[in-house]
Design a protein around this nucleic acid. Structure first.
Lengths: 210, 210
DNA sequence: CATCATATGACATGATTATGTGATTGGCTA
DNA sequence: TAGCCAATCACATAATCATGTCATATGATG
């Protein structure tokens, strides 16, 4: 038997879902509240549910803020977002905060039920559009990390030295060249990257912009 | 009508899936080959399918290498992995390479069919266990970036200035304080972080170690 | 209330960095 | 082969940074 809680401020939707879920043999849904604050209050006093359905737009604290707090206090509760928002930011913020599923509100009641079961079994139900955005996040993340260095191998060496926090002297020692040569390389690096301090080179490098 | 191609070296599985899919009203599956190399050959000569089902372990080129090549040549083909592997590396490599779906091989034929339809509609079908790993990737990524700063808010401001590549003077201007105050803060920052150069602070910060 | 942490500021000095100018060598290529 | 570029080194100087020492003011905390 899976126990389910709901945080959703639209009374109609809330009681519709609650009644449907509670009528299932495999689950029980006795708690359906307006806000994260009320849910936190409830969790303190009574048994905690296995799964929480959570809206994002709520009176008071947002659902996303709520995830973090609830997950911190009760890490065993699985949280599934159920919301109209499908913009990447809300999706990622939710997942990062600790949500394990993300459904859009047009999801049918039977699908919600199945998703809750999937969640309880250790899966991560997502509406297909959501999954697509999550996946795109990967391809994009990797695609834009090829900004054509222009730097020679030696110059890259020097950059690595800088990133390691070395002084000119230590870089010279590391590569067994004179400090003036290091200067010369760094001059050229600055020209190529259009910067004029170690700091900027290090920042660019660590941001993957080299 | 969705046209589907299959790259899978196990003849039994391959022809089973092919026959099942081809018998559906909504799809056609005429091409089922052993290897990426053969598929590339085929794509050059004949019409390209809408969707490709792809194994990872294959004779010759691996399925993951194949994704990249196929996606580069024919970006419109949607690729769905169908494999026994559920380790994070293979999953992420596949997604990064450009796969839009990832099913495990125990998936039932009707589910495979539905997943292909979802894919054709712009969704991203994944087995629930896979989705879970993908989501965990997010929570983990963010979780390990809490190394207890110890830095005060003001010190963080200064660090941000450094990361932006500013000189002491410019940091002083940005926060409307004297350059000697900036020095004082930086002294304290160095003490707390056990470093002694801008470079190391920037590196630490960008590595998420602050 | 006394103390401590934080934020602010000043003055000083040696170290390092940024930048200019110029030179030599070895490889590659038009 | 002439010319270009990468890599090496030198000398010079102004700017910036790292660090020491000291001081004042404020708010929090015991």
């Amino acid at each position: 038997m899976i126990t389910v809680g709901i945080v959703e401020d639209n009374v109609k939707i809330r009681s519709l879902i609650q009644r449907y879920l509670d009528m299932q043999d495999s689950m029980s849904c006795k708690v359906a509240l307006d806000s994260v604050e009320e849910m936190l209050d409830h969790l303190k006093k009574y048994d905690k549910p296995d799964v929480l359905l959570m809206d994002i737009q709520l009176p008071g604290m947002s659902g996303i803020e709520g995830i973090g707090i609830i997950k911190k206090e009760y890490p065993d509760i699985e949280i599934m977002m159920l919301t109209v928002y499908h913009d990447s930011h809300k999706i990622f913020d939710s997942l990062v905060a600790g949500a394990s599923g993300y459904l859009l509100k047009h999801t049918s009641l039977p699908e919600i039920k199945e998703s809750i079961e999937t969640l309880a079994e250790g899966g991560a139900p997502m509406s297909p559009q959501i999954a697509r955005k999550v996946i795109q996040h990967f391809s994009n993340a990797e695609k834009k990390k090829k900004p054509e260095s222009n730097l020679t191998a030696r110059e890259q060496d020097i950059v690595n030295g800088l990133v390691d926090g070395l002084s000119y002297k230590l870089i010279a020692d590391r590569f067994d060249i004179s400090i003036d040569t290091v200067r010369a390389h760094i001059r050229n690096i600055y020209k190529k990257l259009h910067v004029n301090s170690k700091a900027e080179v290090i920042a660019k490098s660590l941001r993957g912009e080299i």
